[in-house]
Every structure is written in structure tokens, then in C-alpha cells.
Amino acid sequence: MRSNTTHPAIIHIRDFVEHVEPDPTRPGKGLSMQLRVLLNIPQRDIQSDDVEQDEIPTLIRFFNDSNQPDLYKANTFVYSSGSFLTNSSENEKFHIVLHAHNLDRHPGNEDDTESYFMHCPGAAQPVVTFLGVVLERGGELNAGPTLLHYRLQTTVYNSSTRSHHTFPITAYFKNGQRWANFPPLNINTHVFLTGRIFGLTKEHRQLAVITDDVHFLPAPNNHSPVTPSSTGKRKRIDRWSHRAGPQTPTNLPATSWTGSLPNTDPFHECPDIIEPDDEDEGTQITWPDTADERKASPQVLTPTPERRSQRQRKTSYADILAQSNHDL
């Protein structure tokens, strides 16, 4: 089963350099280098009859940004970690390819081999972390010469070819009580595993890793239907259309407010001639004030005068002339 996605697989090593050369996958780039290492696997008390513990050829590819070509040479002790993959073909023997994320050398003069080797740290098993899919199971826990193991498949990105690369790793479980209650791994189970390399399998020439920790992961759904939101340009949500409008009126011209209001200004009425009461000495004629007079004199609010129950009769201009002739 071939995975459609890639995941990182990380390895941590420390060992001696056998040979230094340019990176053959990046010709013409003088700062791209490759270190050849025979990865030492120290003898441990962990044994399985289908695993052989031997040195593993390893290629460390890195970019020499320090521009010091003599910094790394044969017999230099280096510390390195980064993404890795394994290769095995008819033309090439099994080997590990490490694309270094970081690379440091042990200080000292490597030409003085006796003193330099003495101060270098002891051999240690390389540590790996990777995500794998279970393909098959073998061996038994706490029974027989073959340890319980699972053959896993992992897919990583190969920066040398700029494509994904799939390779197998066999994870072993040490005898004892730690894994006695561990549930068996089903086929196609996705696990995130951390362990130490302790050799190569004899039959298929795969990395043999003794498991230190394992975590279950949900299987990715590669057959889920494509939704419109996952293809094309995502439509932007109009967040402003759902908000409430302003709560206070805006400043509009005065004409827009007064155009629809009723005319309540008493000065806009036609002039009326009020019929005098019996106490009045003469007839009173009222005229509206002009615009200049309204501006000059402040408007004072006065109580509304009491009116008669009967509507006042308007005096015509003929009545005014008749009254004038009568007075004469």
C-alpha cells in the first residue's frame, strides 16, 4: 500500500567520518557536501535470531554554510540529526541517507588519533522517530528466539529527488513485562514510534529498531469527498452586513427635516381681523412680523390666550370702510 502523504522520519547519530566528498545529487554546488560514515551498532543484550548487528553504511548530506572545506575530514567525530530514508537495490548495498538539519564536530585535533579518540564519547545506538503503517506481524513476546515485531511502512520527502520515498522499517518489542498488556497492532494501523537501531533484518535488509515508545494515530481519510470549501478560492464572509445600523440620526440638511412637518408657525398665517369685544374701543388688525423683526426680537413663550367657544367672525375690508364713514 502506497501512502499519498509524507511525514518526517528523524534520526540522531554520532560517529566517525570515513570519507568526505561533494554531494553527487547537487553537482556544481561546491558547498553541498557528503560525509560517508559506517554507523557503529554497539553489542547489546537485546538479541533476535532474524537480526544481524553490523555496521550500516550511512551518507550524511549537508550544506557547508561555514565555507570551511577542511572542517570535516576523515576520523572527525561528528554529531548530526535530520530527516532520513533507507535505500537498497541490486546495484547498491543497503544504506541510510541522512539530510542533516544540524551537524557539529567534536573539538580537537583528529590527526592526533590517540588523544582525539580517547576524548570522544563512547558508542551509542542511533535513535529514530518516524510515523509508520503496520503491514504484517511476526515473532512472539516472551516466547522463542524471535522477538515480537511488526513490519512498518513509512513515506518521507526525499530532498535529493524532490519526491516522496517509501521504505520499510521493522519495529521490535523487548521481552519483559513492559509490553505484556500492550494491545496487538492491527494491519493498516498508523503509529508514531520512537526507538533505537540495533541492526538489520537478515531476510529483507531492513532497519531493525527496538521500540522505546509508541503512539496510536487515527488513519487519514483519503477517500473523503471534495467539498466546495476545499477547492478553489475561498469566499470571503461579509461580516459587516449582519451588524446593526447607527442608533443616532446623522446630521442632515434642515430642509429634509422641515419638508414633511406641518406648518405650526403662527407668523405664516394670513392676517385676520379680530372682532373687538364690548370693552374694546376699536377694531384691532394684526399683521405678521417680517423676517428681520423675527431675528431682532427673541421669541418668548407666552401662554395661549383663552378663546371663546364661538368662532370669531372675520371682518372684511368693506366693513372697515363702513365703520370709518360712520365715525366721521
Rank of each mutant, 00 (worst) to 15 (best):
Y157M: 09
P183Y: 03
A180M: 06
P276E: 07
F216C: 08
L31I: 07
R105F: 00
P253Q: 03
H95G: 00
S80H: 01
G176A: 01
E114H: 04
E293N: 06
N181T: 14
T248C: 02
A318Q: 15
R44F: 08
T231S: 14
T86V: 10
Q153E: 07
N40S: 14
Y72V: 00
F94G: 04
P303E: 10
V20W: 02
T58R: 06
D213S: 13
T231R: 13
V209L: 13
G199Y: 04
H215V: 14
L261V: 04
L38R: 15
Q153C: 03
H204E: 15
F182P: 02
T155M: 06
I320T: 09
L217Y: 13
V134K: 05
S316H: 11
Q310W: 08
K93E: 12
V37K: 08
G259D: 15
R137S: 15
V226G: 11
A296I: 02
I10S: 03
L31R: 09
G108T: 03
S256V: 12
T231N: 11
T113V: 14
N142P: 04
P168Q: 02
E114N: 08
E306T: 09
N251A: 14
T258D: 10
V51W: 11
L321Q: 13
G132Q: 05
P22L: 07
L71H: 13
I187Y: 10
I210L: 11
G232E: 15
I187W: 08
S163F: 05
A322L: 15
L321E: 13
G82F: 01
V97G: 03
D65K: 09
G195H: 02
S297L: 08
T146F: 02
R307P: 02
F173P: 03
N64D: 15
I273V: 15
L200D: 04
